[in-house]
Design a protein around this nucleic acid. Structure first.
Lengths: 198, 198
DNA sequence: GAAATTCTACCGAACGGTAAGTAAAAATCC
DNA sequence: GGATTTTTACTTACCGTTCGGTAGAATTTC
């Protein structure tokens, strides 16, 4: 009756979340019906509801997955880097990599959130804010070191995110540009835009 | 019965398009029902259908409005600027201004297009492509002049658009940052990121 | 009074979600 | 270790609501 969190169950749940995430990125959440998700997984709509209680909760699970990815692969490792300039470079390169590789759950975090409940949205915004403040803090450090150009730090932080988060909109890993090359270029452009030349 | 394009009619139609555009930006197109648009305009759903034949066509009208704005206020004036560096600065400053001021029709152009028909989408993508190629061409010019940094030009163009088009996601003109200041900062950051220092 | 504009009242389709049922696997009992 | 019970992982069939869209009447404008 109620769902128990066995290992196998978690694997299947993740598979479902990732498939849904892919569809949400492809066509948007509102244009993706629960039946569409079921079709791609070759099961029925009702079968899906064994794994989540509402479409809203499904979205929340996906968003959580995306936030976990950024935490594990960008935020936590970056915290260990003392030097602010090196840290900034690490953040840009690795967040850009996640975005360029087409990690659907990560991509959704910067998109759909109107569909979440108030509490869910607050929880998610808080985690996002934590990450934002960490990056902004790195820029503040660089400012006190005299390395940052003379532009508003908040504007700089948001605009940096714009450069990174725009990647999934145009970049396809199948083209002639590699993920690595494109991340390096975005990183170079961002760093030159942010830091004084010396 | 059928709609004639009188002057007054056009004014009212534009008012309706802009109100719809605002709602589409606020909540997304799929989450905005035609009845929602009618409510904000203090009329009924059926009354709205006097001005367009389908929700799809309404979106297309809005997208056309947005593309016209960019053409009139960015593309056409920029074509008259001979110097590539000055032209690039003009493009960034003015496109950023449109985005930061909250021109809803302009904002939609970079968002919703899955909802369009194939023909509509092609027509709109063609106009967008024209603008993209113009900006890219400016970067190519700067490259031949030896002024551009050593990064892939396509990546540079898309990333520049990311910086500009991300603006509406975070910036609100009511805060302590002015539209002018934020556009100048974004422009400075972009130019430093793109051009060699001399 | 004719044309332009907006309303009332409704339709059919699609959607999110649920109730009831079930085959197969797993766990429990003796 | 064979029989019995329980749980897992779904399915079929359906419900209530909302949505885009329409026909035709009513109202407003000139």
């Amino acid at each position: 009756m109620a769902r128990t969190e066995t290992k196998k169950n978690l694997d299947r749940a993740q598979e479902i979340y990732l498939t849904a995430a892919q569809l949400f990125v492809e066509r948007g959440m509102d244009s993706t019906s629960v039946a569409d998700i079921a079709d791609r997984l070759k099961m029925t709509k009702a079968g899906l509801y064994y794994y989540f209680t509402s479409k809203q909760e499904l979205l929340y699970q996906i968003v959580t997955l995306g936030l976990d990815s950024v935490k594990d692969e960008v935020l936590d490792p970056a915290r260990k880097i003392k030097n602010a300039e090196q840290r900034l470079e690490f953040i840009i390169l690795n967040h850009a990599r996640l975005a360029a590789e087409g990690n659907h759950a990560v991509i959704i975090v910067s998109h759909e959130m109107n569909a979440l409940s108030f509490k869910q949205r607050e929880a998610m915004l808080e985690r996002r804010r934590e990450y934002f403040e960490f990056v902004r803090g790195t820029l503040v450090e660089l400012k006190t070191e005299g390395k940052l150009r003379d532009i508003d730090i908040t504007t700089a932080t948001f605009t940096l995110f714009g450069m990174i988060l725009w990647l999934p909109r145009w970049f396809r890993p199948t083209g002639k540009l590699s993920v690595k090359k494109v991340c390096q270029d975005v990183c170079a452009m961002a760093l030159k835009g942010l830091l004084r030349s010396h």
